[in-house]
């Protein structure tokens, strides 16, 4: 039997919002340590890796590991039926072919349950090695979303250059070129407004802007986004999910031909 109860259904709604652009379906791998998801987008250029720890749930029970193949479009429709302040419970019998979502209003006066068919997805998992990144940038998630959106008007690629002074985002195309430089902030009082750069060595990499924009759908999950870069390895864009977990997007850098 698998049962996971979350007081804030808004977390699950935001997680779906964050992945449904990139993925049509994904497998939720549930074990006693929590729920994990790893899937590449259809073009196999980017990857989503999500982890929700069991201790972040109000109630979590997973008698036997269970992998639930979810159609994310259907799951989004079901989660739209939950109010933000509803309590959501996901549950499934062992080797079940359906999963049930239960939404309870705060005053328990309204309880809804939605049963969804599961899919058999034989998605392969990629091994992602532990990596020491040359540059790790932390900046306000809203700022990053704004930069990706603004620069995607200029070209289909964004060049991210990181030095110890700060990070520069550039794009060029038919209408012209654009550069946005963020200096490393000095003593800001609010952590979530800071721009920090941990640099082992300077890095300059080029990425497809449409994927970066898809990643920023996770902005509502966290005030801060973390970009990890090294020469010739995929970028990692990470958003924390409250105290319960994280969502990480991986994107292969473009190479000059």
């Amino acid at each position: 039997m698998f049962e996971a109860r979350l007081v804030q259904s808004s977390i699950l709604k935001k997680v779906l919002e964050a992945i449904k652009d990139l993925l049509n379906e994904a497998t939720f791998d549930c074990s006693d340590s929590g729920i994990q998801l790893q899937a590449m987008d259809n073009s196999h250029v980017s990857l989503v890796s999500m982890n929700l720890r069991s201790d972040g749930f109000d109630k979590y029970r997973c008698d036997r590991n269970i992998s639930m193949g979810m159609n994310l479009g259907s799951m989004t429709k079901i989660l739209k039926c939950a109010a933000n302040e509803d309590v959501v419970t996901m549950k499934a019998q062992d080797n079940a072919d359906t999963v049930t979502f239960v939404f309870e209003s705060p005053n328990q006066e309204k309880v809804s349950d939605y049963e969804m068919k599961l899919m058999n997805l034989d998605q392969e998992h990629l091994g992602i090695p532990e990596t020491e990144y040359a540059c790790v940038v932390r900046l306000p998630a809203g700022e990053f979303a704004r930069i990706c959106r603004d620069l995607s008007q200029f070209g289909e690629s964004v060049v991210i250059s990181c030095t110890k002074e700060g990070v520069k985002f550039s794009s060029a195309g038919d209408i012209g070129s654009a550069n946005i430089k963020l200096a490393q902030t000095s003593n800001v009082d609010k952590e979530e407004l800071a721009v920090t750069v941990e640099m082992q060595e300077p890095v300059t990499l080029t990425f497809a802007s449409r994927y970066l924009n898809s990643f920023t759908k996770a902005t509502s999950l966290s005030n801060v986004v973390q970009l990890s870069m090294s020469p010739d390895v995929p970028l990692v864009v990470e958003y924390r999910i409250g105290e319960i977990g994280h969502i990480r997007y991986y994107l292969a850098p473009k190479i000059e031909d």
């Binding site: 590449m40 196999h44 250029v45 980017s46 990857l47 392969e124 998992h125 990629l126 091994g127 992602i128 090695p129 690629s157 080029t206 497809a208 390895v233 995929p234 991986y250 292969a252 850098p253 473009k254 190479i255 000059e256 031909d257």
Partner: peptide, 14 residues
Amino acid sequence: NNLQPFLKDFYVPH
């Protein structure tokens, strides 16, 4: 212009 590699060029399926 530049080429867009796949993730499998960097990470191995397991």
